[in-house]
């Protein structure tokens, strides 16, 4: 049997989506503007895009760049963040550098990177990498800094070397915080992916979107926005599942101390 609360929880996101589409539909019908298609028109354009081989190749190319950029960023940023969190010298060296890069929109760096590396995959992947790195470094840094000293001492007494302590104590202890950073990073990867394709048009989901805009195919524009949004929701949902699994031990539903000394 499903409780009413569970039904509400399941139905809420669906209702929110339907509500948004309904508002869109009504607004569009009311405004009667050519550049603002109705929700139904936009949704009708989705199968055309997804059925088109060229478009699919473009979208898959985008996702591939995003996966590579995100993957490399995570692999570099987590160790760096953890080292910064546990070593004052490393933090003192990298903190000013990161502080300079942090407020700069990564897309603003694209023209420079394009001059060096062209308009191909490497440039776009690099921009995604930069976009993802900072939140992951920051959260890894904060997570590593917060690791209880006594936990590391306990490990040291068991004979763990400094490197073992970093990998086998700091990393798992900071994992909830690290994954929070990765989740932010994932969304940023999607954003930088689209922006990079907006600036260096050549292929990708962003390319379809902006080409359609140039050609006045507004239903396609809105359909692409829906597709990108849906991709974001799916990626985030999958990531959230993985995250919840990995840090089950820290989840609040476990927060029920037993009454027993």
């Amino acid at each position: 049997m499903i409780s009413p609360a569970a039904v509400t929880k399941r139905a809420a996101p669906v209702l929110a989506c339907i509500g948004l589409l309904a508002v869109w539909q009504v607004a569009s019908l009311g405004l009667k503007n050519d550049s603002f298609p109705t929700a139904i028109e936009a949704i009708r354009a989705i199968p055309d895009i997804l059925g088109d081989k060229e478009s699919l190749i473009n979208i898959l190319a985008s996702l591939r760049r995003m996966a590579i950029g995100f993957g490399i960023a995570v692999l570099v940023s987590i160790p760096l963040g953890l080292l910064m969190g546990r070593s004052r010298a490393v933090a003192a060296f990298f903190n000013p550098l990161l502080m300079v890069i942090y407020p700069v929109p990564k897309a603003a760096l694209m023209p420079i990177i394009m001059l060096w590396l062209g308009v191909g995959d490497i440039t776009k992947t690099l921009v995604i990498f930069l976009g993802v790195s900072l939140p992951v470094i920051y959260h890894s840094f904060e997570g590593a800094k917060a690791v209880e000293e006594k936990m590391l001492w306990s490990g040291a007494a068991m004979g763990l070397s400094p490197l073992q302590r970093l990998v086998r104590i700091v990393l798992p202890a900071a994992l909830p915080e690290i994954l929070t950073g990765c989740r932010t990073g994932l969304v940023l990867a999607l954003i930088t992916m689209i922006t990079s394709e907006m600036i260096a048009r050549q292929s990708g989901a962003g390319n379809i979107l902006f080409n359609a805009l140039d050609m006045g195919q507004y239903d396609t524009v809105y359909a692409m926005i829906i597709i990108v949004g849906a991709m974001g929701i799916c990626l985030d949902a999958v990531f959230e599942r993985v995250r919840a699994r990995l840090v089950r031990w820290s989840e609040p539903q476990f927060d029920m101390p037993l009454s027993f000394s």
Partner: peptide
């Protein structure tokens, strides 16, 4: 490992 600490803060590995 010849000296084993037990801390007030427990310092268990939560994972």
């Amino acid at each position: 490992p010849d000296r084993g600490p037990v801390f007030q803060e427990f310092a268990l590995f939560p994972w």
